[in-house]
Amino acid sequence: MSTGTDPLASLAVLPGVPEAVAEVRKAVDRLYGHRVMRRRAGEVTSEAALRGARASAALDGADWPLEEIRRRSDFSGDEQARAVGGALRISAEAGQLLGVWRHSPLQVLARLHLLATGDADAATGRPRRADETAAPLFPLEIAAAEGFDRSAKGVELPAAPGADEAAARLDQLARLLAGRAEGAASGTPALVVAAVVHGELLALRPFASHNGVIARAAQRIVLIAEGLDPKAICPAEVGLAELGTAAYRDALAGYLGGTGEGMARWIAHCAEALRLGVRESTAVCEAMQRGMV
């Protein structure tokens, strides 16, 4: 594989990454070949969106049962309800933003943030100012008031870069994605591109809040845009929640460290999460086939 035209291509040949890419591709292909997908693909997509949103909110501390989310129609209450509502809004609209994403990913990120915050908190749906710091990731995991064991939070993550550096790196990421959309660089597998977008947004935390749910939604959009999961039926967020925040933090620390080993660990973590998301949707398909859904 040549690395001359694709700045991400070198990541695709890191130890373990080609195997992870191949395993994910095989798992996704099996799911797309399920007989339920021939006639009920739209229902599978809707269920994946709901389950992905629930899991993404859980990673931000709002761990609600799926049936509670199905039952509720009002998500304007406390902080947890608003977090769930924001994740649901993002998940419902992410697939519709694909056309804009291809030429203006930064515009999509701004839209995702507005969806995450909701009208009542729209003022925070803007890039961080130079005098602001990003909100911590995994917010409830480090909030003693919520009863979390502070000793269990795992690897310490560095602070996000300043707003100016974050803006410059975000612009660079947007140019890279636009180049891929135009065909200038297309050799890197979708899984690797999605993992880099996910990791970079978590590293930069370009907004004052809600960066986690946005990073996970951006990963989903990349997987759709790059053709690995065009129908959005593989909720990687479910896998991330199943693997747990401690493993999430540890893998992200590898990305932030920037070493080949660390990057490979992050990509492998994203791959495993996606495989677990495939397993989740496969179970949904099996339930539909048995007439249980």
Rank of each mutant, 00 (worst) to 15 (best):
V100S: 07
K153L: 08
S91A: 13
A145T: 07
R126C: 05
G118Y: 08
L115F: 10
E141G: 14
W101G: 11
G154E: 00
L106G: 01
R102P: 00
A120D: 11
S91L: 10
E132P: 07
R89P: 04
L106T: 00
R128M: 09
I142F: 11
A94P: 01
P136G: 09
D149F: 13
A135I: 06
E141L: 14
I142H: 08
V108A: 04
E146L: 13
G154R: 02
L109S: 04
L140G: 02
A110L: 14
D149P: 14
A134L: 04
E156G: 08
A144G: 01
L112E: 06
G147F: 05
S91K: 09
A122Q: 06
G147R: 01
A152K: 12
T124W: 10
L109W: 04
G99D: 14
A145V: 06
S151F: 15
R129V: 11
E132S: 14
S91N: 12
G99K: 12
L114R: 14
A123K: 07
K153F: 09
A94E: 07
A123I: 12
L98Q: 00
R129Q: 13
D121T: 05
A135H: 05
A120Q: 08
A92Y: 00
E156T: 13
K153V: 05
A152L: 14
E93F: 03
L114H: 11
P105G: 08
E93V: 07
L137F: 12
A122R: 04
A123G: 11
V108R: 00
R111F: 10
T133S: 14
L88N: 06
A152W: 13
R102V: 03
A143M: 06
L98N: 02
E132N: 13
D121F: 11
I142Q: 09
P139M: 03
E146H: 15
A130F: 07
L88I: 10
A120Y: 07
S104I: 03
S151D: 15
A145M: 06
L137I: 13
T133L: 13
A144Q: 00
S151L: 15
A116P: 00
H113T: 07
L140Y: 03
S151T: 15
G125K: 09
A92F: 03
K153Y: 11
K153R: 12
S104D: 02
G118K: 08
L115N: 09
I142D: 07
D121E: 11
A134Y: 03
V100N: 10
A134G: 06
D119S: 03
R150D: 15
E132G: 12
R111D: 11
L97K: 10
A143N: 06
E93R: 03
P139Q: 03
P105R: 08
L137T: 11
S151Q: 13
L114K: 12
E141V: 14
R150C: 14
G118N: 05
